[in-house]
Design a protein around this nucleic acid. Structure first.
Lengths: 160, 160
DNA sequence: AAGTTTGTTCAGTTTAAACTGTACGTATAA
DNA sequence: TTATACGTACAGTTTAAACTGAACAAACTT
């Protein structure tokens, strides 16, 4: 039993590192992995016990994971406590959350920089940075194109 | 002059936010952007002055940016101080650094998880997590496939 | 209704990261 | 050689993030 536990701990540790790559904090990543490896939905108290942190911490961690659509709450008749579980097909979920964050940001920034560009044009002093602004816009355009294609790719991969 | 400064400050602030998306700390992102918007290579003291931080901070920041291939040191005859500048074609540089980080990580984790899987097989207790381990490996495989395609895509986009 | 149980809020604390100034080593200049 | 200028290492400090325990509110139980 202890040996199996060791393997589980290693799995939690290693898989969490991959989860962190998706811009998720180390503790949230660990929390997700624990929940993922558990075959049953878990309560806040259970997770608090396993991860060794206060219930408050687990509560906030779970909330951010829910906001990212990586964890959902489930009901089971007769159980008063809130139950949480991870969603199926990790890849789809993580990619979606991740790409959404990117394209969202890029869209906002493109607009913001365009607005600054107009301001710079009105006061016709901005000749020096004019060039850089255009580069920035192009930069965002390229990123947008890449991640859009990746988004379509992700959908295709799921189908296959 | 002050008006232009305001616009420059806005640009620094906004563009830094995009740079941060590439897993670069806020201050490093700001440092990069300042260096990028400056049309001439800069010294540590100049950057320290502009960013309002100690020379030590700038030094460590520049080092990490150099390690990521986003900044390079240049020489100019007659100038004793070290000069630093940003590389051309941002998109290529950032994507390369970023994708490299991803594929690198995924490769390592795939191997690590495979190793754990073998251990779990030897002690034949791991039936419960066996399933999860396979899911993890598949997860990594899909990520690898996506980012590899994105890598090729990045190269194609540069050519066009 | 009174008493538990559970999730959440909040102030205060702990812990980790960012930052600074002094000090040292190396290179250039006189 | 002596002196000055620069980059880097390091110990100590400041600042921000993570975490906790106590208190509150809502829902359930009896």
């Amino acid at each position: 039993m202890t040996l199996v536990d060791t393997i589980t701990n290693q799995l939690i540790h290693e898989f969490s590192k991959t989860i962190e790559m998706f811009d998720i904090s180390p503790t949230d990543a660990r929390l997700f992995t624990i929940l993922y490896l558990n075959h049953q939905p878990m309560t806040l108290d259970e997770m608090s016990q396993v991860i060794g942190k206060s219930k408050t911490s687990v509560n906030t961690g779970i909330r951010t994971l829910i906001d990212l659509n990586l964890v959902k709450q489930v009901w089971k008749k007769g159980v008063r406590k809130n139950l949480y579980t991870t969603d199926k097909n990790l890849y789809q979920r993580f990619m979606q959350a991740y790409l959404g964050k990117w394209t969202n940001h890029i869209n906002i920034q493109k607009q913001t920089i365009h607005a600054i560009q107009e301001k710079a044009n009105h006061r016709d002093q901005g000749h020096l940075i004019e060039n850089r602004i255009n580069e920035m816009i192009e930069f965002h355009r390229l990123i947008e194109a890449s991640f859009n294609k990746l988004k379509h790719l992700t959908i295709d991969i799921e189908k296959s």
